[in-house]
Design a protein around this nucleic acid. Structure first.
Length: 520
RNA sequence: GCGCCUCUAGCUCAAUGGCAGAGCAACGGACUCUUAAUCCGCAGGUUCUGGGUUCGAAUCCCAGGGGGCGCACCA
């Protein structure tokens, strides 16, 4: 350590010899004038106090707020420990008491009080001039104040970064939703709930990976650029590759690539895939969202029902401690098994309408019109049936319920039902009134798949913008042989919404899609 | 894309046709155990923008912009 130039000793300048305390004061460094921008002023200018301490390049805090709270839980009020620690974080609150000052320091684990006094804190005057929101590191003894608050009794401290902008009302935070989503960095400090939700999202995703790996699933990555959109009915985003001079589509689903990998011998694969759909925004829709898709050889759609309900119930138990949860104030029981019912059963149960694919066309049209469904040209009975279900029944379901057996006409990638002609083995699970997942016994017959694609092509020709394109390579893959396979796609954003009791998808996405902001 | 609602100080919000305000933050000061500290003082505004009605507009009307919700579309 050079005698001059090292302004903060071993702790703040790095090196390997962390001794557990400061060798020198962090204030020993030279002071340098610095031009700063005043965020509330029009232009750059020198501040009234032109000398600032350059922050250290690295430091090694040796304690966290939560760690101290746990370790010293038994310390009595007024108690001292003799233990010196260094903590770092943002100063969120400060309470001055003449020659004493108390500050709330927040790090990623929680909050700890800093206890400063003119008699024992270096540059006490500087300490009380810190702005709310400044990043600081502080070293001192762990004590509990006479009023019972666990504290670091600050002997040395250093400012790590200044907060030139405020984090809003210190009690009420930032409530303007636009500001919260655009300036998430501020929202995360101002609103504890934002931090909680996004942290839980991260933990849910990593839990999902571990849970799937434990069952032998292999994580893979498939292309986001697709030469043709496939695997779902949705409008894609289009982009262009210059040197190939081809248009490429951002994927709307990883499905067809994942099943190619099953053909290739990956018997259990999954991908936590960001997918992109060129659709309107809503509290439940973001143009890019995260979908877990997995495929399991030798399984059918009933295996997928078991898988999703065990996964969701396991997550609830892990993160909420129970499968009896509340969403939007309504109780919801996520414990497996979930109810299974066919689409036609549910339509009858909720609307009294007795319809299925065998219903006479005129009767079906009459029922559709009575349900408020506007039948469009080109719709077959399967599409009409699906629309009737969505109009009359889906919103009324709270669930969880596996809605089984969809019309073949609206399910070009699912395998024919083993006993119900015209239907396929497909289910969607409705949880809290929303579709959480979509799963099939996968269609494995290449000839049938080719025929389904032809059917889609006809629909596209008659104006259905979301009809699937014919994917000849996918059919070729099936010709090599796809074993009987169960597959499922689970909307992870909606799952996180469910487990965090969030009513907006934007709350569970750190940087949701917004109209671009004009900053002048 | 259509409909409804909304936009006031850095933040959170008042003021409904009659002098634009409060709390917090900021700034100055007091205070040796605070917890959203307290107390005193001081400052802070293109009321989203433009137009109109009116003696007078944050308030009413029209147009535009941002945002929210609903519809449509979807998971």
């Amino acid at each position: 350590m050079p005698a001059a130039g090292g302004r903060a000793g071993a702790l703040f300048s790095g090196g390997h010899g962390w001794s557990g305390r400061l060798d020198r004061s962090p204030l020993d460094g030279h002071r340098v004038p610095r031009a700063v921008a005043d965020p509330r002023g029009a232009a750059h200018h020198l501040r009234a106090e032109p000398e600032v301490i350059e922050p250290p390049y690295r430091l090694e805090p040796d304690a966290t707020a939560a760690g101290l709270a746990e370790r010293y839980a038994e310390l009595e009020a007024g108690g001292e420990t003799g233990a010196t620690v260094t903590v770092a974080g943002r100063m969120m609150l400060r309470r001055e008491m003449g020659k004493l000052a108390f500050a709330t320091l927040r790090d990623s684990s929680g909050s700890i009080q800093l206890f400063a006094g003119a008699k024992w804190t270096a540059d006490f005057d500087g300490f009380v001039k810190l702005s709310l929101g400044d990043w600081i590191a502080a070293t001192g003894e762990v004590v509990r104040t006479r009023t019972g608050e666990l504290s670091v009794k600050v002997s040395e401290w250093v400012q790590l970064a200044e907060a030139r902008r405020s984090f809003g009302d210190k009690f009420r935070g930032i409530s303007d939703v636009d500001t919260r989503y655009r300036q998430r960095y501020a929202d995360l400090w101002a609103n504890e709930d934002s931090r909680r939700v996004l942290l839980l999202r991260s933990r849910i995703i990593s839990w999902t990976r571990r849970w799937l790996e434990d069952q032998g699933f292999v994580e893979v990555e498939t292309p986001i650029f697709h030469p043709m959109p496939g695997g779902a009915a949705a409008r894609p985003f289009v982009t262009h590759h210059n040197s190939l001079d081809v248009d490429l589509y951002l994927r709307i689903a990883p499905e067809l690539y994942l099943k190619r990998l099953v053909v290739g011998g990956f018997e259990r694969v999954y991908e936590i895939a960001r997918v992109f759909r060129n659709e309107g925004l809503s509290p439940r829709h973001n143009p890019e969202f995260t979908m877990l898709e997995l495929y399991q050889a030798y399984a059918d759609y009933t295996d997928m029902m078991v898988l999703v309900e065990q996964m969701v119930a396991g997550m609830a138990a892990e993160f909420l401690g129970t499968t009896e949860v509340t969403y939007g104030g309504r109780p919801l029981s996520l414990g497996a098994p979930w109810r299974r019912a066919t689409m036609t059963e549910l339509i009858e149960e909720h609307s009294g309408l007795k319809v299925d694919l065998g219903t006479e066309a005129e009767e079906l049209a009459r029922v559709a019109s009575g349900a408020g469904v506007r039948v469009e040209p080109g719709w077959g009975p399967g599409k009409v049936l699906l629309e009737i279900f969505e109009k009359t029944t889906e919103a009324a379901l709270w669930g969880p319920v596996h809605v089984m057996d969809y019309p073949k006409e609206v399910s070009p990638l699912a395998r024919d039902h083993r006993s119900r002609p015209g239907y396929v083995e497909r289910f969607e699970s409705i949880v809290a009134g929303r579709e959480l997942c979509n799963a099939f016994s996968e269609l494995i017959d290449p000839d049938e798949q080719r025929a389904r694609f032809e059917e889609q092509a006809r629909a596209k020709a008659s104006g259905d913008e979301e009809a699937m394109a014919r994917d000849d390579d996918y059919v070729r893959a099936l010709e090599y042989g796809l074993p009987p396979t169960g597959g499922i796609g689970i909307g992870m954003d909606r799952l996180v919404m469910l487990l965090t009791d969030s009513d907006a998808i934007r709350d569970v996405i750190a940087f949701p899609t917004l109209r671009p902001e004009t900053l002048s």
